[in-house]
Design a protein around this nucleic acid. Structure first.
Lengths: 181, 181
DNA sequence: TTGATTGCAAAGCATTTGCATGCTA
DNA sequence: TAGCATGCAAATGCTTTGCAATCAA
């Protein structure tokens, strides 16, 4: 069981997420297993975008016998249940982020350091709907990603006019900064 | 050589595109070959989003000996030269679209019939920049995709409350409808 | 003549599937 | 006890790489 000392609201949220997962499994006539519990718990306690491989590594620290197939299958269940969401940042990797009781948001990805900023703009959402309406299009969901340089990297770039560049940066930091305009 | 009877402006554009490609190849110290010419020409004359496999099929109608590897490599050159652009519509396939002298645009994808609508909204672009600026983020490029039902499919859905659904639709139509608000 | 290009086969990757064994309910 | 779950190995599907033969400049 996940423990959140001094963080009762996180513990409560985990309870709700676990209930959603167990209910999803029950509804499909599936079974609760130690592996699924461990994978769910590990996913929920990790506050970052992570790939399947990241998650598999973390899970194996607690149970080295778990295979990657089970991680794939469980992450699919978590996604179906609304606890996880797939995201892609253009580096040909599939990342997963927490989705339960998370507001919809979009992403800015720093192509220099890999920082990912989550943001939300009600104005952009509104304009998307208006634009879609002009084509008689009824949107159900969307994806907006901005690539560029984050504040730190654009300052560095100013200091060093010659862009070092070279290898693609590994996405490594996640800064959650959701707010309206 | 591509021929465009009664369409002198298309012929002229093809000239410019071919020049860009040849110049790109020359600049890199590479060589002009029949295969590259044929692939470029086939790509340029096809007015649709196409996968590598689509393009390979078309190319083979004129020269069955061309291998898929060469198509991959040439499409990479075309992309570098600014004539092609990779796009993804969420069906796990990589599509390529014409990019040369095309205005930037985004996509709406009908999840029922596969129609792809290209659109452009200066207001959305402006708001993206403003939103990025709030985070000190300097965007270089972006991707916005809206999924939902196109006009025809949302009308059909009204007539038939029970959505047939089932298999994922194959993206099959491209309607170019670029305009501002 | 030099070195880039080609097409085949094979290798890589990420993800999925088949299947015998193991384990929930 | 029935049949879902697991983990391995193998199969996919897409893309890239190694390499010998070929060809452009």
């Amino acid at each position: 069981m996940l423990e959140f000392p001094q963080m009762p609201q996180k513990a409560a949220k985990f309870q709700r997420e676990r209930d959603v997962f167990l209910e999803h499994i029950r509804r499909l006539g599936l079974r609760r297993t130690e592996q699924r519990d461990l994978i769910m718990e590990t996913f929920l306690r990790t506050e970052a975008h992570m790939t399947i491989e990241d998650l598999h590594d973390r899970v194996r620290r607690r149970d080295p016998s778990i295979g990657h197939t089970t991680v794939y299958r469980t992450l699919k269940l978590l996604t179906e249940a609304g606890l996880a969401r797939e995201v892609r940042f253009g580096d040909n990797k599939t990342y997963y982020e927490h989705h339960f009781e998370h507001e919809h948001h979009d992403h800015m990805i720093c192509t220099s350091c890999g920082l990912v900023i989550e943001f939300f703009s009600p104005e952009i959402e509104e304009l998307q709907d208006q634009t879609a309406a002009k084509f008689g299009f009824v949107p159900t969901h969307h994806s907006l990603r901005l690539w560029g340089l984050c504040e730190n990297c654009s300052i560095s770039a100013k200091d060093t006019p010659t862009v070092p560049s070279g290898a693609q940066p590994r996405l490594r930091v996640v800064k959650t900064a959701t707010h309206g305009t």
